[in-house]
């Protein structure tokens, strides 16, 4: 094989490769446009002065920031003052969701870590039984027993309350131990053994040795439990019923699209949706490696 031949082969190969790459660039660009279209459209609508739901133009004919302002206060020209945006107190809902998300993230993370540590590192007689029960309970459709949960909360005097919501979310977290159990399984047992020889109790091992090693899984658990209340519509809408002051943003935003309201509130819905989507998106983009680690770590373990 002479040099020229090899060079020709190389350049032919390079050309083919270049052509393939160009095709991939084209495909990727088209896909990105398709994928971003609805989101950019949503942002455009949120800045739109008209209230059109199905405009012919992609960009608003009239730009405004009012939709965002109206989420928190509406100008009452008669009273000459800012008033609460009555049927949809978005600010209140935002606060509700934030409180619920933070509280349930803290409690749920603790519960999940406790349970998965017990299942992963401790050996006791009823361990298998509990694992099986956990598996079985997880297979019932989540909202099959919503009505009964509501009745129980009524007994405790916690129906339609944010505290009740936090409790239900945290209680359900007890079944979400698989991923973090998988993570704990990967921490070498020799660490425990060594500590035990040094006279540490299991309690100390948990706090001093295992938890500091579990940063990724703690972040992953906290992240997922923090995010879920922002997106939960089904249970909250059933649980809060007519108590609009205690709605979360998901229920509130959904209600803005009811036939009675959509005509007047659609662009406001868009603004509200953008407002919660931005921080969550940023959070997720930053934390994505923890997310991947969590899911695949669990997946590898099976």
């Amino acid at each position: 094989m002479t040099n020229t031949q090899s060079a020709a082969m190389k350049s032919g190969y390079a050309a083919r490769r270049k052509a393939a790459n160009i095709i991939i660039y084209v495909i990727l660009s088209i896909m990105v446009i398709i994928w971003l279209f609805p989101i950019v459209w949503l942002v455009m609508r949120s800045f739109s002065g008209d209230n059109l739901i199905a405009p012919k133009n992609f960009f608003p004919t009239e730009w405004t920031f009012d939709n965002y302002i109206n989420l928190f206060a509406v100008w009452d020209s008669e009273a000459n003052a800012w008033v609460d945006p009555d049927p949809f107190p978005y600010g209140k809902w935002l606060l509700n969701t934030f409180i619920v998300a933070v509280c349930s993230a803290v409690i749920s993370t603790l519960i999940i870590l406790m349970i998965s540590y017990a299942f992963s590192r401790l050996r006791f007689k009823t361990r298998k039984t509990f694992l099986n029960f956990g598996l079985i309970l997880g297979m019932f459709p989540g909202f099959m027993s919503m009505a009964a949960t509501y009745n129980i909360m009524e007994i405790f005097g916690l129906k339609q309350s944010l505290v009740g919501l936090v409790i239900v979310y945290s209680a359900g977290a007890g079944l979400g131990y698989q991923v973090s159990k998988g993570f704990f399984d990967t921490i070498p047992r020799s660490l425990d053994e060594a500590a035990k020889i040094d006279g540490a109790t299991r309690n100390q091992i948990f706090w001093v040795i295992i938890l500091p090693l579990s940063k990724p899984i703690i972040v992953y658990t906290a992240l997922t439990t923090f995010l879920s209340p922002w997106a939960d519509y089904i249970f909250v809408s059933y649980f809060m019923k007519d108590n609009q002051e205690n709605y979360t943003v998901a229920v509130g935003l959904y209600n803005m699209l009811e036939p009675n309201y959509i005509a007047n509130y659609f662009t406001r819905f868009c603004a509200g949706a953008v407002l919660i989507a931005v921080p969550i998106t940023i959070l997720f983009v930053i934390m994505q490696r923890f997310y991947v680690a969590g899911v695949t770590g669990g997946a590898v373990k099976g």
Partner: peptide, 11 residues
């Protein structure tokens, strides 16, 4: 693509 995955699903 991650951006689209990150926006809450119900939105």
């Amino acid at each position: 693509f991650v951006i689209t995955a990150a926006v809450p699903q119900f939105v």
